[in-house]
Amino acid sequence: MAWLRRSEVVIAGILLLAMIGIGLVNPAFWQLDNLFSLLRSNVIIGIMALGVLMIMISGGIDVSFPAFAVAAMYLTVKGMLWTGYDGVALPFLTAATMGALFGCLNAFFVYKFRMIPLIVTLGTGSMVRGFLLGVVGTSMININKMPDVLIDFAKTEVISMTKADGTTYGLTAMVLVYFGLAILVHLILRYTMIGRGIYALGGDQEAASRAGFDLRKVIFFIYCFAGALAGFAGLLHSGMIWLANPRDFVGLELDVIAAVVLGGASIFGGRGTVLGTMLGVFMLVMVKNSLIIMKIDTTWQRVVVGVIIVIATAVTAWRDQKRKARGDRT
């Protein structure tokens, strides 16, 4: 029965209850097009959450990735327009690389100066965003100018259906990209030594270094990887909404961190899984998007997200305390 106590199972249970609850308020929730659009909304937050998950397992935190994502996205789209390039693979590679380079900056300060990641990433995030808006520009690139390849790529669907009234809807293929990345991160965390090094670092930094982990490698890996994921997600986002807005993603870090915490990761490091994070992301996105379905005014969104963060962290704090109490008594 040990699996019953796994946090993923608990989260999945709560998620199911919430879905049933929302479905009772408005059965439209269960319609396939609603579920498909929910999944679609998971993609961007989900990909970013994978990066934040790795950082949180290592005992850090990152609030700079939205700035990295928007900078990588905007610069890449500008570059595509400027060069007239019309491929898909290279731009995504470029955006991811840019994100990784920004991530290096975080890693450098966290590793070299052993400064609290929150403060480092507050600084780098503000720098990157300030640079983008102050030097590169503030004007949006809208659908008339957006490279068609990006939009077409993001339009790809795995399932397409037609409703009775003739309108079509479908499940975006970007979900597969998200799932693919999730599996990749899961494999890294579970089956590679660098992945185990992330858990080791989050468990006990001193012991990790004594055991022979190259902490510099691990720290650079996680912050760069998280940056790359953010850059990738940023560009994907612009393709999905047909718009490259240099002021995008403001405040997104709160949603993503909330989702990761909701997914059972510990802010003190050492604990967290990909599956849990994906469930956390789904929960957050579902609640946010279902406000309309439940006929609640959308201005309440921030309040709801805040309340969810508080409740989720309260539950986690309670769980950690119980674990600690058990450890003390033995």
Binding site: I61, L118, L254, I257, A258, V261, I267, F268, D297, T299, W300, Q301, R302, V303, V304, V305, G306, V307, I308, I309, V310, T313, A314, A317, W318, Q321
Partner: peptide, 21 residues
Amino acid sequence: KITPILATLGTGQVFTGLAIV
């Protein structure tokens, strides 16, 4: 006993959210 970062992150959302409401 929520960590200050997370507690104030959440309440910050609530306060700003209430301001929007």
